[in-house]
Structure formats: C-alpha cells, structure tokens
Amino acid sequence: MGKLFNVSSSPHVRDRITTQNLMFDVVIAMIPASVYGVWQFGFNALLVLVATVVACVLSEYVYEKLMKKPITITDGSAVVTGMILALNMPPEIPVWIPMLGGVFAIVVVKQLYGGLGQNFMNPALAARCFLLISFAGFMNDFSAASIGFDSVSGATPLAQLRAGQEVDLAALVIGRIPGTIGEVSVIALLIGAVYMIVRKVISPRIPLIYIGTVAVFIFVFGGFDVTYTLSEICAGGLIFGAFFMATDYVTSPLTVKGQVVYGIILGVLTGTFRLWGASPEGVSYAIILSNLLVPLIEKATLPTAFGKGGSKK
C-alpha cells in the first residue's frame, strides 16, 4: 500500500483559476484597446501606459516592503490597475500625473484598506477622479491629441453631443475621435470584452444591464432619438467602464439579483450625470458611487442559506 491518502477539510473541489491568471486574462483583454490607443495617439500614449503600470507595481512593492507585508506584485492586480488608469488618461497628459494617480490608487485606495480584495472602490477609478478634481485642466485637455496624420481641435464626441451637434457614428465605433487613450475604439474594446466573456473572466450580466439601462434612460429622457442614443453609448467611457471597470470582482455584488440591481443603478446614475450633470461624462463617478452602494445591495439581496427560511407555520 504505497498510496498516499490525504485527509483535509473542505473545500475538496478545487479550481485551476488563480488571481494571477485571471489578471493576466484581463491584461490580454485590454491589449487591443491599448494598441489602438498607442497607434492612434502616438508615443506619449505608450509612455503613459508604461509609466503608470510601473508606478502602480512599484508603489505596491515599496508599500508592502515598508509595512513588512508579503509582496503581492506578482499577482498582476497592480498591473491591471495601472493599465485601467492609463487607458483613462488623455493622450497628451504629462507623465507624472498618471504616475501620481497610480501611487494614489495603490497606496491610498487599495493598500490602506488592506490590499487586494479589501478596497471599497475601484482603485483605478478612484485615482482617476482624484486626478480629475485636482488637475481639471490637464485631464480635460483633448485638444492636442493627434489622430493619424490630422490634428483635431477641441471637443470630445460627448461634448459635441451635449452642444447639440451631430457626431459621425462610424468614427465613434472605429475610434477616430478624441478621447482618453483606451476609451475611443468601441471595436477594440469589444474584442477584449468578448475574450473575457469567452474565458469566463467576467459574466456579461453587469455590462449588458448597465449599457441597456443607459440606452433606455437616454432614449426616454433624451428625446426618443435612436441616433443620439447610439452615439451616447459609443461615445465616452461607457463601453470601457461597463466591461472593464464595473465588473471588478472586489467592488461589484456577488449575487445575481445584486448584479441586476447594481447594473440598473449604474445606468441610471450615468444617464443622469450625462444629461443633467456639469460635465458631459459621468461613467467614472457613476461607477465609484455605485461601488459604495455594493455592501448595501449585497445585504438586501442576500440569498437564503440552504435549510433556512421556507414557509413558517
């Protein structure tokens, strides 16, 4: 009897999925959008991407080293945070701004609350809002962004829509518009999203409900205009936010019912901010506000445990 019998407590069924390969899949899913952004906006976009990822990983390493905690940079979560943050930056931004944001995301939003899995907000988005409030001038400056060989002046499609102008829907889908590095190309983002859904990294529930709610909201309150509604969906950070940021495991509800509620809240908030807010874009604020509501949503949609509840006589 040379066979070794292991006695261990549950769980006995294990999965091959680790934090590391999940994060790796998310990174792969962001590559089409990153490549498109770098191709369209040029060298500074690449610089921003690399610098932000380095800043995130380095600040995680330094913090954990100083606090004498286990070093977790190899799990890839800091890389994902850095990439999401970088893709949310305007292409011509001075590199130190996203780097500062990376340090804020990792140290203040993630590590001070206990590291991966403990943060109450999406670190990349919280950092983006921190930068948006602090450096409004830089963060809203899309004017210098060169598209291919031409330079476009001024407004993002959302600002144009706000001003009542028509936008070219085809340009929106392909991404030949001014905007942040990663949000411009709907096609590139959808390639990444499909990859994540096929690999079962995310479930399409939250993004679809989110985008659907925004569509209905804008359609109803924006004057029953199909082109306008489609432009609003393809413009700005909605697709990027819905698939890559609203689905963050740590800051979205676990239960199916909770995810439905969460998606609807996200959609209503985004629609409200876009139609009546001070700024034409509202995806970031909608997501971090909804992140704060997640514990409440989960409490309200807690499923009944097996053997509990049922009819009381």
């Binding site: 701004i97 500062l100 203040v108 921190f130 409030i133 602090s134 450096f135 409004a136 830089f138």
Partner: peptide, 15 residues
C-alpha cells in the same frame, strides 16, 4: 509645481 487642488476641497481635509 502643479497644485493638487483636491487638497483645498473637502476630501483633502480628510486626507
């Protein structure tokens, strides 16, 4: 130096 204006807004007080 670029001022980080969030510090003179409400969140900065808490930070």
């Amino acid at each position: 130096y670029q001022p980080i204006s969030i510090f003179i807004l409400a969140p900065g007080a808490f930070f």
